[in-house]
Amino acid sequence: MADWPKLEISRRGVLTGTTVTAVAAVTPALAEIPASSPTAAVATMPVTFNVNGARQQLSLDPRTTLLDALREHLHLTGTKKGCDHGQCGACTVLVGGKRINSCLSLAMMHEGDEITTIEGLGTPDKLHPMQAAFVKHDGYQCGYCTPGQICSAVAVLDEIERGIPSHVQEDLTAKPHATNLEMRERMSGNICRCGAYSNIAEAMAEVAGARA
């Protein structure tokens, strides 16, 4: 058993256990490939970034995603883990004012960055206009995707204001407007299983209208 930590354990490996052990014994180099060896402990690395205006210093396993750093280490559990593969948008946060999937980014890659989560947009006493509009228009049902939807919605209106084009724009060189079609296209990276989409679009339209 003492040799086990050096072997890659796969279903195939277990089935042909004796063969694998024999091969490993004569070719020790095979067992030294770091990527295929189970690792006992991982050296942590330091990283410092700002979250919602507060400086945070962490020492993390390099595998830690920005999402897990926020939720598990900083206990900012407003940001949600949905698919953990960048498909659902529940983990959307703002980095340097731009929305990203925090599940598809390593915490280490954010040294010095300014990160805003749903907790940094507004508080229960002082809601961000987009949060207030989601409440008013019933832009959610179970609420699990909501923090990601709101972070994304805030960024979408900013992207439209900055003239970032979209797939549904007829004239690519024209300035985009916050139409229903534009918002639906731009929000396609945020999935809502409850299907609150039409109310989310109404909440966004109200905030966009108030700005214009």
């Binding site: 959307t92 990203i100 980014s105 960024a155 396609s188 990276g189 945020n190």
Partner: peptide, 8 residues
Amino acid sequence: ASGQLRNK
């Protein structure tokens, strides 16, 4: 992709 992915 999506807006979030294109940003990164």
